[in-house]
Amino acid sequence: MHPRVMRISPGVVSHALAILLIVATGCSALTPAGRPSNGLSGIVLWMPGASGVQLLGDWNEWGGLEAAGGLIHPGAGRMTCDSDGFWTLQEDPDPEPGRYRYAFLVDGWRWVADPCNPESAEYDGRGVSLLVISD
């Protein structure tokens, strides 16, 4: 008699895990969290555990990536983290009305598009976000 092999798809595992988490945490798991107030159209990133987050975009030449030297300055678009893991910008760059692509540089090496922005674009082969500033 051969032992029966049961295959469980990862989709089922992830769904089960999500359901378990929701049950364990109650209704607050399905209630959207409040958004910290911030300038620049409220750009904010929730990323607990990151050592640092920079906001880079067309308005600051992607932190110097396209400027002479091709290096990202570690101080460009530096964000600060609150006790809940929300990263916000302290100084609003306040660009002119127009359209700008942007993304977060997490830990100095990982690019992350803004999950709270439904509009996307592309920069250097990466998925990034699109910010539209009207007059």
Binding site: S9, P10, G11, V13, S14, H15, L17, A18, L21, W46, M47, P48, G49, C81, D82, S83, D84, G85
Partner: peptide
């Protein structure tokens, strides 16, 4: 599909499943 959790500013965890055509990567 990606589910993440984090209790404070110190740590977070994410589990992600990506389906492209017939392949799934977790």
């Amino acid at each position: 599909l990606c589910v993440g959790t984090g209790s404070s500013a110190a740590s977070s965890a994410f589990l992600e499943a990506d389906l492209v055509d017939d392949s799934v990567r977790v």
